[in-house]
Nucleic acid binder design. Sequence first.
DNA 1: TTTAATTTGACTAATATTGACTTTTATTAT
DNA 2: ATAATAAAAGTCAATATTAGTCAAATTAAA
Lengths: 155, 155
Amino acid sequence: MQSQNISDIIEKYLKSILADSQQVEIKRSEIAELFNCVPSQINYVINTRFTIQNGYVVKSKRGGGGYIRIVKVNLLDDSDVIDDLINIIGDEIDFNKAFQIIQSVYQEGMLTRRESNLIISSIDKRTLAFENRQIEKIVRARILISILNRLRYDD
Amino acid sequence: MQSQNISDIIEKYLKSILADSQQVEIKRSEIAELFNCVPSQINYVINTRFTIQNGYVVKSKRGGGGYIRIVKVNLLDDSDVIDDLINIIGDEIDFNKAFQIIQSVYQEGMLTRRESNLIISSIDKRTLAFENRQIEKIVRARILISILNRLRYDD
DNA sequence: TTTAATTTGACTAATATTGACTTTTATTAT
DNA sequence: ATAATAAAAGTCAATATTAGTCAAATTAAA
């Protein structure tokens, strides 16, 4: 019923492989042919759905025998992870990126599902919609950073 | 059997589907065509009849393969307490009042201690400090309301 | 009559798709 | 070894495909 665009379908395909193994290696043109799309669409899928915020690292090689490899990474020490994420966030951040960050923090086990949902509510577009589009992103970054910093210590 | 305006008819149509399943996913333009109205009327119907107070959560995506999904959620018993709190908050709120509200929601057992602390981090004065003092309060009110609305239902 | 609800459409924003062109790497021919 | 060619993947901008917003116009209700 849902996700009828090719990008979502390709995403699901790749993630179904990643459910069983730590990484997946593809040949761009083969996947493009398999799903009847242009090769650059594979890049689009990777750039929008397999970012580091999402917990994936991508490596590729051109030329004969070229490939794209997507590796699922577990982030190591919580405190380092938090530093990295705060750096990624910077001074402003859009909702999609913020969502991905919360998602990966959740997957790290640093937030419960309920906590994640509450945070997502607090930073979503409707909540932070303003005349000034930039303020929205700035506020979102501040909230997120504040919460991540709060996760550095218990109670 | 009165008031057969298009909005009511569309509402009934969607609710008849929701009588059988937990959610309905539509393509805005298709429904608009089906009922011979402009696409934005679908937004009107959703905004006026499928709100969280009524027990619906709406998610959508634009672009190719876009959709609008309406999900029926179980409202928890605290839903009218939440109504009251949202009224108290209004359009803006200072930190102290917000803190009290979170505290009482915590004492009601609707938030864990950790959740409360995360929320407080996200709305504290430093997080929301702005040139304009009023914006701070407005943002705080929005965040708080958004979180309270999220507490109306589980998962 | 006054107010609230509905309808409409022009404009905006987000997301996806496509393809021409570029860059990198490997292989083959000289 | 070196140069030419082939075989990948990358980039980027144009276009297409949705949904969202907002306010004016219209209609219904009080």
